[in-house]
Amino acid sequence: MDLKGDFFTWTNKRAGNNLIQVRLDRALVPNVWVCNYLCSLYALSRIGSDHYPISYFVESVFRKRKFPFRFEKMWLSHPFLYDNIKKWWNISINGSTMFRVAKKFVEVKSNIRKWNKESFGNIFVNKATIQLDLKEIKDKIQVKGYLDDHLARENEILSKLHDINSKEEEFWKQRLTATWLVAGDRNMKFFHLSTMKHEASNRINHIIRDGILFDFEANISCEAVCYFSGLLSDDMRLRPEAQ
């Protein structure tokens, strides 16, 4: 895990060029913790020892929240995507130029969300359904053997599974920061864990304003609003300081 606070965890406590500082202490946690909890590793202040104590915090369960609109790369595989976007963009709207452009963006995003549910749906639920269908046909094959309709049905399901795997791969790769992955690498577990870790590292766990620590999500949101509202104040002296 990434270490917060002091980067080094051991020092020989020497002065000048004789000073040595290294990071010796580390922590390993199960992947399930990273996926389901906000995990943080801190190096605390060293007092008497030459080692910095490290402390592991499990702060809270991830909360569901509304995510901003994101263009999914897997949509590009749909043959009618561009035609639909063109149709949604060319709607007639009255008003100023900027108003029409802003309104068209809102309409396009709204229509894409509806179209996504109809055309793609929940890829994880769809994959689970396809896997159940594949198990069902394999059970029939084990009992009755490879009949013509069984073979055709199995090939149809395998084709759907291949397609949904490609969409899932694209879904997770889009959320990764790893650039060395190659096409066709369907290590879904790695994709998922890397994405969850990246999300946890991007999360604001606390803020400090005027020396006061705010670590509850509601308080963080409130203080952030107050801070940026203060930036718009006419009186520069009223602007709060935050870190």
Score class of each variant (00 low, 15 high):
Lys4Pro: 00
Lys4Met: 06
Gly5Phe: 00
Asp6Ser: 10
Gln21Pro: 03
Leu24Glu: 10
Leu24Cys: 07
Leu24Ser: 12
Asn31Ala: 15
Val32Asp: 15
Ser40Arg: 08
Ser40Glu: 12
Leu41Ile: 12
Tyr42Cys: 11
Leu44Met: 15
Leu44Cys: 12
Ser49Gln: 03
Asp50Thr: 04
His51Tyr: 02
His51Ala: 00
Phe57Arg: 13
Glu59Ile: 10
Arg63Gly: 09
Phe67Lys: 15
Met74Ser: 13
Ser77Asn: 12
Ser77Thr: 11
His78Gly: 05
Phe80Gly: 11
Tyr82Arg: 10
Tyr82Ile: 14
Ile85Tyr: 08
Trp88Met: 09
Ser92Val: 09
Ser96Thr: 06
Met98Trp: 10
Arg100Ala: 01
Val101Leu: 02
Ala102Thr: 08
Lys104Ile: 01
Phe105Ile: 03
Lys109Thr: 06
Ser110Phe: 08
Asn111Pro: 06
Lys114Glu: 03
Trp115Asp: 02
Ser119Val: 15
Phe120Gln: 01
Asn126His: 09
Lys127Pro: 08
Ile137Phe: 09
Ile137Val: 08
Asp139Ala: 15
Ile141Asn: 02
Asp148Ala: 14
Asp149Thr: 14
Glu154Ala: 02
Glu154Gln: 15
Ile157Asn: 00
Leu158Gly: 08
Ser159Pro: 11
Ser159Glu: 07
Asn165Trp: 00
Asn165Cys: 09
Trp172Tyr: 09
Lys173Asn: 13
Ala178Lys: 09
Ala178Trp: 05
Trp180Arg: 15
Ala183Ile: 05
Asn187Glu: 00
Met188Trp: 04
Phe190Ile: 06
Phe190Cys: 04
Phe191Met: 14
Phe191Lys: 12
Leu193Pro: 06
Ala200Ile: 13
Asn202Glu: 07
Ile207Arg: 02
Asp210Phe: 03
Gly211Leu: 02
Ile212Pro: 01
Leu213Lys: 09
Leu213Asp: 03
Glu217Gly: 08
Ala218Val: 07
Ser229Glu: 00
Ser229Lys: 08
Leu232Thr: 01
Ser233Met: 15
Leu238Phe: 09
Leu238Ile: 12
Glu241Asp: 11
